[in-house]
Write a protein that binds this DNA or RNA. Structure first.
Lengths: 208, 208
DNA sequence: GGTTACATGTAACTAGTTACATGATTAG
DNA sequence: CTAATCATGTAACTAGTTACATGTAACC
């Protein structure tokens, strides 16, 4: 899932690792929590698989191939402007590749649907098409509906020896899940109404 | 965290591995999801560390040391009664030990507080004392309050380029977290009012 | 000139998962 | 007799984490 976060973030703009972590934390708040120990290896993997590439590295390589027309001084000035107020120390700036964009769309479409992956997918789902978005929301809805049924079954199964805390937990979980579903329904309706072309082929939703 | 689930479950009654998994699924519903691949190794670890012990094993060892007075036939009959309608094939029935009960209380008291651990702890918190329960709830409350602040900060930080989906996700997260906090407040109040002896030494809660 | 923040990376560990291997017992 | 369920266990893999190691640049 960290690869989804990285690719979704690089799709907006080129960034280096450290910056990526800061930005992810800033935009995703508590639903990200990326550590360097997983970030850098992930960037390495993505680079080796061709999903991202380094466009600027620590003080040496040039982002755009130099045509040889710049003197040493001009090059230094240009580098100084490019790198902003802080300058590149030994950092590697990454950019997403076309292969990476494909991978991003594939990750957004994959059916795994725990709380964390769903949140991440929703956070970056603007990079996939409306149909894929509706599919994502519907899939999540189905997962929650199943969860709801299971929790209710668990509540029913033990009417007798009701533990105070466990019971309250499950009732609260039921409420939360119902609210989540209502929220998803709203998102789905909004999504559907904002693209009146592709009919609801996936699920055959409610007819008005 | 699987050890907490196992110990909490064995505290109620002796059980064998397979039964443990079924029971956990039944009572915890979607908030458990224990697989055999983690259950059996965990039972092994707990046994080696003396937190649980085998009280009855597959067809051979006797739960209570035989005094030698039983004939082969009588022993078989007794075994048949002990094992109920299905009989022990090659199964190992586990029981929690005093050391295991201490470990259970320690696990309930440990400060890690992600969604999953909190749910599990609440599910089994009846095995610890009222003070520990209030401490658990207060700790969770603090975690959620922090999450709330962080999410709000993230929403504020990006007023400008608001992504539809990410924004909705965060607003919904804010609502959910607020409701979770209100629920915790209710639990805390109930817990406090049900034991009027030990005053709120931990946090110095609101004075009436 | 020392502290803080920037920047990248590796190693060991954590807490699980799925898939595999094995076999007993029971219901139809 | 054969399929389903009960029952235990291992091996390989997953997706991260924390702690360590290293070094640069900015700030005061």
């Amino acid at each position: 899932m960290i690869e989804l976060a990285i690719l979704g973030c690089l799709k907006e703009s080129t960034r280096h690792g450290y910056e990526l972590k800061k930005h992810l934390r800033e935009i995703l708040g508590p639903l990200s929590r990326v550590s360097f120990g997983s970030l850098y290896p992930a960037l390495g993997r993505l680079e080796r698989s061709g999903a991202v590439r380094v466009v600027e590295a620590g003080g040496m390589s040039s982002p755009i191939p130099m045509t040889g027309s710049l003197t040493g001084e001009a090059a230094a000035f240009r580098r100084a402007r490019l790198r902003g107020p802080r300058g590149p120390r030994n950092r590697k700036v990454y950019s997403i590749t076309p292969a990476g964009e494909e991978r991003l769309v594939a990750l957004l479409a994959d059916p795994s649907d725990d709380d964390r992956s769903f949140s991440l997918k929703l956070a970056f789902c603007r990079w996939s098409d409306p149909d894929a978005r509706v599919a994502l929301l519907e899939r999540r809805r189905a997962t929650l509906e199943q969860r709801l049924a299971e929790t209710r079954r668990a509540i029913e199964a033990r009417r007798a020896r009701v533990d105070r805390y466990l019971h309250s937990l499950m009732e609260h979980d039921t409420d939360s899940t119902q609210r989540d579903i209502a929220w998803l329904d709203h998102l789905i309706a909004t999504e559907r109404s904002s693209h009146r072309n592709t009919r609801d082929a996936t699920t055959g939703g409610p007819r008005p």
